[in-house]
Amino acid sequence: MAYHSQMTDSLSDMIACPKCDGLHRVPQVDIGAQARCVRCGTVLMAPREGAMTRIVMLSMTALILMIAAVFFPFLELSTHGLGRKSSVFDAILAFSDGLMLPLSFAVAALIVVLPITRFVALIYVFAPMALGWAPAKHARSVFKFAEHIRPWAMAEVFIIGVAVALVKVAGLAQVTLGPAFWAFVGLVIITVLKDNFMCRVTVWQTLNARSPS
């Protein structure tokens, strides 16, 4: 599908790979298949059956799990007859004194605020389209923003951090996993599933095709 011949087609029939600038003719791609850039292998198109509905459902589930994960007890620690339950909220407030305060904000942003913002943004963009309506107002800017904050939503990195922390306190005290821990694990799995349904270029093409004007 590389584009080598003279430019007789109109520009809208072509696509330039965002990662390497390789010029391609927009291919016909079957549902479930994907087209990759011949030069760098970046996925250019990956239409999926009911992708929008699935993204909306998964984002909503993730949102509910996140609320549970933040406020239910996350881990419980006990030793020498002393016990302490802590939630994700407590982990965020761990840095709340003095110099460490900015770090508190950063942790809150990375593990809670940005993931939630991303889920809400994706629901806003995809829900009207999943229902067959025209895209919501400013859907393009909202989607661009959602893609922009993607690397900064670190729920899955946090889970590995929890695992390491558990090993570190294992010698010091007994640790029990709370319900919020499992909510968080579910959240991570759903986030990975959801991102697999999303191909950026395909989403832009759909947004463009469905927009009025």
Binding site: L75, L77, T79, H80, L82, R84, S86, D90, A91, I92, L93, A94, F95, L103, V107, L110, I111, P151, W152, M154, V157, F158, I160, G161, V162, V164, A165, K168, V169, L172, A173, V175
Partner: peptide
């Protein structure tokens, strides 16, 4: 891979929140 380096920061946050047992630890 860059974001995975944040692990240690989260470990510190979790440990600081969890392990606050006054004199014991």
């Amino acid at each position: 891979i860059g974001r995975w380096s944040m692990i240690d920061v989260f470990v510190v946050a979790i440990l600081s929140a969890l392990v606050q047992l006054n004199f014991v630890a």
